[in-house]
Nucleic acid binder design. Structure first.
Lengths: 347, 347
DNA sequence: CTGAAAGCGCTTACAG
DNA sequence: CTGAAAGCGCTTACAG
């Protein structure tokens, strides 16, 4: 009998050594019931002695699970992405799953086709969607059609039938503006996030909510469009600070833009926080790198990603049992006050 | 004949539709020679019509390739890691490979065992090592023993028989110090990188080289230990700036620490660059977020990672043909002068 | 230039 | 509680 096996240790080697059938080894591998304690111990010993690890390809081909989870991303902030990966990776590893990172151009028409190919090729057990892919309904439709478990991280809006982890961005932005108002500010500028990112709009809503709640009239001249980048924050702040109605505080929809606003203030010789308060959103490391350090909203990204992985793994374990296990998990935000906000300068 | 196929499109469906044997479809899939143009076209059409994508698990199990590349990392800077991933991911995708991201604790004894398990489970075709995993000889030994193609990104030292991409860190640090000297500085502080990262030592060597080349005596009081983090840069700079021999310039072994040094200067009321020049290394986005923006060394991380992926994919394609194709690629650095360095203040 | 058969290393579906 | 057989969807090794 010829064989192409390159001396790799297979389930058959383990079975022989433990003097059982391969099916029994398989049972031990998959933690199935109905294995005598003694037999299980013998198999485990053989596995250890042979340094055996089962082939994912074979398991995937024969069974229903690939032990592969996909992480779809597109161009997010490096800090954000890194945190997501750390959180997701840890849970996947603990559960014996591997993480496949795939770039997913949010704009392109071809994304649906590419996600479908990815799934048929790799037989992904589940997929994690990060913003702005979270907003992409085309991709989500493909996932639904192909019956692939998925969890959306920070979806633009909460929907029935969609598993997600999220934070109350609107409330968080509200809290931040209230913080500024409580310091005595009323001319508060706002730099909006990327127009195509769902969370961006919600943060603007929180801003206007807070103004309304405190009887401050909304002034469109104080709201400018940003793109979530340092550069866009810099330009937007410049616009606000050299315009006709100069704010005493600027709230940027993320930390990078807030850092840009601080740079613009430095350049214009406007000292922060004495003459201008600046605050951001997310509490990425950027927030402590600026001078002064940023008052911001802490978003627990690592925990959220870990939570998303937990939800996904639970769905995968449940399999295709009806009803589908849809669940969402909401995370708390925190207002982090640092040196970049203070009372407005006296006249 | 019962079947467990869940209505998935397989190579057999394609073969039937194109009226050929599955072997012929396989040939087309793998771009093998010896297929009549007409036949190939017929098969390709069937593939398109059926929206067929071959199962990686089946290909991996039957053949010699898994189409999976591993990226081993441990705790690097988010910016660095993100850039590496972007560069590697793009090339892998273009070549039809998928990227498996795996955390690899550089310290732990168990890393060898875990890497071996990873390889036997997933049958990775190749592995990319990022610093500080690049320094881990235990992991590299496992890779060699298991005969897995791998490329090391920025290894601590260049070795024969190891494929790598790298930059001349020593020369780059030399250039930076020479820049400071040319501005008129002679009391130049240095903040060292993490003691366990290979590149860190090399940058220190470049610093001492430059001093020697310009007849400036090495002063140990001007060299302090950092950890590549913002916080460690902050503390190290504080130490340098409040010590007995205060430098007129500080060169930090990466941008994060340089940002920390700028923060320390701000806190002590020492203006940058008027009273103190500060410079970093890497040219991450951090370098443009600080105020003033950092003079630094640009390291082409995305290009280096893409180059590493190219080398790895070439090795994989070459297969186990002797002699092993070991090659290294050296990348050029650039000195980027921004606002954080200037002539020293006059007495 | 094309194809029929065996095999990759597991799990599924049964049987006992 | 355990096992023998079939099958997953491909590639390898041949044969023609």
């Amino acid at each position: 009998m010829k064989t192409r096996n390159n001396g790799r240790v297979t389930i058959l080697d383990v079975a022989k050594r433990a003097d059982v059938a391969i099916k029994t080894v398989s049972r031990v591998l998959n933690n199935e019931a109905n294995v005598k304690e003694n037999t299980r111990a013998r198999v485990l010993r053989a596995i250890k002695e042979l340094n055996y690890a089962p082939s994912l390809a074979a398991r995937g081909l024969a069974g229903t699970k690939s032990f592969l989870v996909g992480l779809l991303y597109d161009n997010p902030s490096p800090y954000y992405m890194n945190s997501v990966q750390v959180g997701a990776l840890q849970r996947c590893r603990d559960a014996g799953f591997h993480l496949l990172v795939e770039f997913c151009d949010a704009d392109t028409k071809g994304s649906a086709q590419r996600v479908h190919s990815l799934i048929t090729q790799t037989r992904l057990d589940g997929v994690l969607l990060t913003p702005p892919v979270s907003d992409n309904t085309t991709v989500r439709n493909v996932l639904n059609r192909d019956g692939i478990a998925h969890v959306v991280i920070s979806p633009p809006t909460l929907e029935h039938g969609v598993s997600s982890v999220h934070m109350d961005d609107r409330r968080a932005a509200f809290d931040m503006v209230e913080h500024l108002i409580s310091l005595g500010h009323s001319k508060i500028g706002f730099i909006k996030g990327h127009p195509q990112h769902g969370a961006a709009k919600v943060r603007l809503n929180g801003y206007t909510d807070a103004l309304r709640a405190h009887g401050i009239e909304y002034n469109p001249a104080l709201v400018v469009q940003g793109l979530f980048s340092f550069e866009s924050g810099y330009q937007s702040a410049q616009q606000l600070l050299t315009g006709s109605s100069r704010p005493t505080a600027i709230f940027a929809a993320n930390d990078d833009m807030a850092a840009g606003a601080i740079a613009a203030a430095h350049e214009l010789g406007i000292s922060v926080p004495d003459k201008l308060s600046v605050c951001g959103f997310d509490d990425t490391p950027v927030a402590t790198i600026t001078w002064p350090a940023l008052t911001t909203i802490r978003q627990p990204i690592v925990e959220m990603a870990a939570g998303a992985a937990d939800l996904l793994l639970a769905q995968i374990r449940a399999g295709s049992k009806e009803p589908k296990t849809i669940s969402s998990h909401s995370f708390r935000h925190d207002l982090i006050v640092r040196g970049s906000t203070a009372q407005p300068a006296r006249r």
